[in-house]
Simulated assay, not measured.
Amino acid sequence: MRNPAIAGGWTLRAVPALPVPALFALAILALGILVVAIGLAVSIGEMAIPLGTIAKAVGNRLLGTGFTISPIQEGIIWDYRLSRSLAAACCGAALAMSGAILQALLRNPLAEPYVLGISAGASTGAVAVMIAGLGGGALSMSGGAFTGAIIAFTLVCALAAGTGGLTGTGAERIILAGVAGSQLFSALTSYIVTTSANAEQARGVMFWLLGSLGGIRWPDVGLAAPVAIGGFAIAILHARALDAFAFGVDAAVALGIPVTRVRLILFGLTAAMTATMVSIVGSVGFVGLVVPHAARFLVGPGHMRLLPVSFMIGAVFMVLADIVSRIVVPQQILPIGVVTALFGAPAFAFILYKARRRL
């Protein structure tokens, strides 16, 4: 008989509550680490920029200080690297939270945001705009990606709901629906590229599909930041429900959780966050899979702690991955999805090995 203390493939262990001053200190420390990581991301590149110069440039723009710095350096800081780093942080935070939510809802330690087929749908939408000219120029590539992601999520939900995957006890069926949806939209993407793209377009599509932060500008940050922060707020409000889902649907019902409504809200939340981030940076894998497990190792499975820690670790991880993508190959920028996969694939193998007796 399976141990009732095992939920979703991990042991629910008690973690002593911390006093409010300690929690506040940890929050300040986490924010400090994120700020340092972003500062390093802005500093490191083909043109190295001192941290002091970065602080002056930010002060000039936000506080109206009159520090004298090179216009070239100020342009690189403000118009390129800072927006790129902030978007990377928002993307990592949102994907990590989405992974933590899905792993609880599906009670599967290998679940991640792309299990719902959202990434494949976003890729199809972007390719349809970029190559097939869908929208007649009125729709941007990011808009096409977002539209494709929502269509894919709707299709997967319809398929899962038809088999009880959203409302019954067999929530694992949504994983199978997501696999089917991913294969369908991946095939559509390949068909569009094969039949309509020239060599240059095909190369651009492949780079975007692997994840790219190269075209990030401040309007993208203006979209990513509210989605990540708003998603965090909604997820925290449902932390108790996620704890209940970790023990199964019957336990959630016994605790008075409105199972169907909460599932729809949280599945929709993960879809919206993932679709938004994919529409901005492209497909970036393994963040939603690996980061929640790292956070769970540090603070346990209680979602009131797990979600904030996943948020911060995901943000820092993506910013550091962006740094690696820009320096690992001289005079060349790797797709950020390649970097996350290089770190995430071994971690995935380790998780699979540890969970082999439960899968």
Rank of each mutant, 00 (worst) to 15 (best):
I216W: 02
L264V: 12
I236A: 13
G248C: 01
A233L: 15
V262C: 12
G211Q: 02
A271Y: 08
I265P: 00
I265R: 03
I229A: 13
I257F: 02
V262E: 13
M273E: 08
F245Q: 11
V249S: 13
A252T: 12
L266A: 08
A252C: 09
A275R: 00
P226W: 03
F247G: 05
H238L: 13
G231M: 07
G214I: 05
A241R: 04
R263I: 05
G214L: 03
A239I: 06
G215D: 09
F247Q: 13
R240S: 13
F232D: 09
A254T: 13
G268T: 03
R261V: 13
F247W: 08
L266Q: 06
D250H: 15
A225F: 14
V262W: 07
D243N: 15
A246I: 10
P258A: 01
L213P: 12
I236Y: 14
F245M: 11
P219M: 04
A275N: 02
I216S: 08
L223C: 09
D243Y: 12
F267S: 01
L264G: 05
I257H: 06
D243M: 08
D220A: 14
L269M: 02
G215V: 03
F247E: 04
R261I: 11
A244D: 07
W218N: 09
A275C: 06
A235S: 15
T270A: 07
W218A: 11
A244M: 12
A228Q: 01
I216E: 00
A275H: 07
L210E: 07
A225I: 01
I257M: 04
A251T: 15
A244H: 10
R263V: 04
P226A: 02
G215C: 05
V227A: 15
L237A: 15
L242V: 02
L242W: 10
F245R: 10
A251L: 05
G211T: 02
P258V: 03
T260A: 15
G215F: 01
W218R: 10
P219L: 02
I229T: 10
I265G: 02
L223E: 07
V249P: 00
R217L: 07
A225G: 00
A228I: 01
A251D: 14
A251F: 14
P219Q: 03
G248Q: 03
L210C: 00
R240K: 15
L264T: 06
I234L: 15
F232K: 01
L266H: 10
V221D: 14
A246D: 12
R261E: 12
